[in-house]
Design a protein around this nucleic acid. Structure first.
Lengths: 128, 128
DNA sequence: TTTCGTTATGTTTACAAAATCATATCGAAT
DNA sequence: ATTCGATATGATTTTGTAAACATAACGAAA
């Protein structure tokens, strides 16, 4: 026998976002900033990292300085001038931030998955 | 003896947000929508609920229809006309959604609090 | 059959956020 | 001293989102 027609349900997705902010709420440090830091770490310059990440230098620079403002300490040792124009390297605090963030993100991913499974189970319960 | 001066660290806050979306990504169902549903449930009309929630009727209506679009089924039984102008009541599916969401939120809050603490602990580790 | 308060929705305006543009500064190497 | 490529930053333009405005439709009750 055929199942009776049900209200057409669409597939839904559970999303999340985490970010750091200061008390003032001006600006936030989120995923793209951490990514940027990682690329700077491998490329050696903010400019190259910006291009690599598909954003303008202006934007990338803004993200870094904004993050530094929020935290109250520098994330990059910036050098300018010289034959190669300059370069940027991550500070120790920056490396530590990155590491801590990645661990946090992993845990979020895990608990989101669990929680969402239960959520869907709840929704479908006693519907059939 | 005085503590040596340290790089001035500001207090930072970790924020997060969860929401439901469809495959298309158009629109999202987040906390304020669930709140709205709860108020409708107690007030009886979308209009009264909107005012109570401090948003325009237009906005509240948009949130509800957007949520319905994402889910693919109605959240409200809307009646218009009549002496009292009309009213709205939650569908059974709507009640179930609310319940499931609240459970999700609770779970999430719990498991995330730990993660936050560990994050801060990581950041401060080996700094002194 | 008029009324009244609600649901329903297109249109326009205002504002905020983001992208783009323009330009200055720096300093090791040549 | 000049050059060159990166850092540094103000100013302008564009765009996208949210709020505000306006107006129609509905139907039970009087």
């Amino acid at each position: 026998m055929d199942k009776p027609p049900r209200p057409s349900r669409k597939e839904v997705f559970l999303n999340y976002k985490i970010w750091l902010s200061s008390l003032t709420g001006h600006g936030q440090i989120e995923n793209d900033t951490y990514q940027l830091l990682e690329i700077i770490d491998s490329k050696g310059t903010l400019r190259a990292a910006a291009e690599d990440a598909g954003m303008s230098y202006r934007k990338a620079w803004g993200k870094i300085t904004s993050a530094e403002d929020i935290l109250g300490y520098p994330l990059l040792e910036k050098h300018r001038g010289g034959k190669n124009g300059g370069n940027s390297t991550l500070t120790p605090a920056s490396h530590k931030l990155l590491e801590a963030y990645r661990a946090l993100q992993q845990r979020f991913d895990d608990s989101i998955e669990e929680a969402f499974n239960d959520f869907v189970k709840n929704l479908n319960k006693q519907s059939e």
